[in-house]
């Protein structure tokens, strides 16, 4: 089957404490596999995947995985710039990782402003809890925090794949909705959102009358 060409490209970034499962989440989302052994991320890592919206529109996600370790903080900070979506990742079995979420969120907001990114609170390692592990962050507690701060919220497992697709879809759908409503514009130079390659008129490309296409929507 021919891979479809996408309409828009969004840039998302994953942040959160080290070892909460950011890389595993991304790996499952892009490969459909769970990595049993996962080395700590060195700095930043890049992933890409297509995802389809409810109305059939193809969106390409450019996904940046970041190291949670303090020593990489000065590097990862530079990657917040131009991100349109932020996934705040914590470990359900590690309450400290949840307690650090406000700090991560503030850091992201500070580096991305004045743009207002779409945030999602993502709990990882749901499979451990389902297997009898000790849950340290209740769903209610996380839900309350998410509601207070206007975040999307979902609990996931990169091992079983539970809700992984949903975690990325909710952010993408929200960004897409904001484009449709005009809140976001795919402006030239704003890398968080880029126009894609299958705009209707691109199939009727005519060299005689061609001029650089204006990046605009809605």
């Amino acid at each position: 089957m021919v891979e479809p060409i996408f309409e828009y490209q969004f840039r998302l970034i994953l942040i959160g404490d080290s070892t909460v499962g950011k890389s595993s989440l991304l790996k499952f989302f892009t490969d459909g596999k769970f990595a049993e052994l996962s080395d700590p991320t060195v700095g930043v890592d890049f992933f890409a995947r297509l995802i389809e919206m409810k109305d059939g529109t193809q969106i390409k996600l450019q996904l940046w995985d970041t190291a949670g370790q303090e020593r990489f903080r000065s590097i990862t900070k530079s990657y917040y710039r131009n991100s349109v979506g932020v996934l705040l990742v914590y470990d359900i079995s590690n309450h400290a990782s949840f307690e650090h979420i406000p700090l991560w969120m503030m850091e992201a907001q500070r580096h991305i402003e004045p743009h207002r990114p779409v945030f999602a609170l993502v709990g990882c390692k749901l499979d451990l809890i389902n297997a009898g592990g000790h849950r340290e962050v209740t769903t209610e507690e996380a839900q309350k925090f998410a509601k207070q701060h206007g975040l999307h919220f979902v609990e996931t497992s990169a091992r079983s794949g539970a809700n992984v697709e949903e975690a990325f879809r909710m952010v993408t759908q929200e960004v897409y909705a904001r484009i449709r409503s005009g809140e976001y514009k795919a402006e030239d130079g704003w890398d968080g959102i880029k126009s894609g390659f299958s705009r209707p008129n691109s199939l009727d490309f005519n060299l005689v009358v061609a001029e650089p296409e204006k990046s605009s929507c809605c």
């Binding site: 490209q9 930043v44 450019q62 940046w64 000065s74 590097i75 530079s78 890398d191």
Partner: peptide, 21 residues
């Protein structure tokens, strides 16, 4: 300097994979 150089490289690191794709 750290911020400045880090931002420059981060920008490149995010742009060049796009070109590769």
């Amino acid at each position: 300097p750290k911020r400045y150089i880090g931002d420059m490289f981060a920008w490149l690191h995010q742009s060049i994979p796009t070109e590769k794709e």
